[in-house]
Design a protein around this nucleic acid. Structure first.
Lengths: 212, 212
DNA sequence: CAGTGTGAAGAGGTTCACAGCG
DNA sequence: CGCTGTGAACCTCTTCACACTG
């Protein structure tokens, strides 16, 4: 029987997934000029219970003051550290269609820790053209350029039919996180994280609850 | 947002949320010319266990044949019926910035049960302009026009600062489902469903797992 | 005999409730 | 007194395992 390693309680992924929303809400409170909040107020704003907020935060430390609440700038700093967005990550975008262009023009990423630094597409008509501040590169040189720049985060905005092939290339280029906008599931090696964005799936989730 | 009912055991919201992905995968299999599949194959494609697939489907009926598997066209039809996307829903889009324009140009919604029929914006410079097949309408007439058309689904692509006000108007117009692209939580009355899309939150979820 | 459907067991996540501290 | 942090209880979801069937 192999020995079990000392049980280090891992933090549930579902908890990690809520932290960006806590951070988002706290920054919104800060923008309103607030300095202190409580688990109750945060929960109300987020549609969660105060107990859940406290329990989630307690996985990472003791950030509040009993009887008082949470200092907003301090908690923002802690969450940015925990989520590793107390820096700006360089990102590669693959796909320069309508969606890719909208992503490239979106200015909301920088403030939350991300900056697109390269854009690639396979369409010869697009290669060499300008998009936002970038020149669209070709797929043949993509792997080398991404690897050379040590970029580890990718956004994938190509058709579903091409998504897996491009994902394989991104992994080869050293990507460790892929935000997948293509409506298809990606297979990636262990150690690579994928998050999917599928608006139509969300829509279909909602129609279930509609009266016909 | 689980919908409660006193008499019948409600189907878990998390199960409903997976159905669109089952449907998506089944249609992809159908497009490959396949006619039969199994819970094992579906699970592999989706990164889920076969038991989960079977259990989820069993909430809605007995769709498979023991020893054989699932008939793909039949199961596609059942899922479309369950999710109420065996029809095309009319949708109103509010917000004609970069994101709104990308959404309006995206052709992937129709095939999955949705068709944008109206677009509105508050920017006088945009009102009256054309976007895809539509003329951008003003916010003042939005409520009446949406109500008159009996549209119950909205996509919200306005800045976070305006999102709640617009959501209130949409509810007043009779919206029962809102796909919220703004990075802020919406407060809506019971009976209205909201689904949120926040790519930056997904990105921050992934950075947690990256080595610094 | 391959693969579904499903109770039961097991894991995992949420809420409770209260000690403890500012 | 107000609000956090946290074991314990509770509840929900997932996985197991097997009877059953085409």
């Amino acid at each position: 029987m192999p020995h079990k390693s000392a049980s280090v309680k891992p933090i549930p992924d579902i908890v990690v997934g809520r932290l960006p929303f806590y951070l988002r809400t706290l920054r919104s409170l800060a923008a309103e000029g607030r300095d202190i909040t409580s688990s109750l107020e945060l929960g109300t704003r987020l549609g969660l219970t105060s107990a859940q907020i406290r329990k989630d935060l307690s996985y990472f430390g003791e950030f509040g003051k009993q009887g008082l609440g949470y200092n907003i700038p301090f908690l923002v700093g802690q969450l940015r550290r925990i989520l590793k967005v107390d820096r700006v990550w360089e990102v590669v975008l693959v796909g320069a269609g309508d969606l890719g262009r909208a992503i490239a023009h979106y200015h909301g990423f920088h403030d939350r820790g991300f900056e697109i630094r390269m854009v690639f597409d396979s369409d010869p008509a697009k290669i060499g053209q300008s998009l936002a501040d970038f020149k669209i590169g070709d797929m043949e040189t993509m792997v080398d350029k991404v690897r050379a720049a040590k970029i580890r985060i990718a956004m994938l905005a190509v058709p579903a039919t091409a998504a897996q092939k491009v994902a394989d290339l991104l992994v080869k280029a050293g990507a460790k996180a892929i935000l997948n906008y293509a409506p298809t599931a990606l297979v990636v090696p262990k150690g690579v994280t994928v998050q999917n964005i599928d608006p139509a799936a969300h829509m279909q989730h909602m129609t279930y609850y509609l009266e016909s």
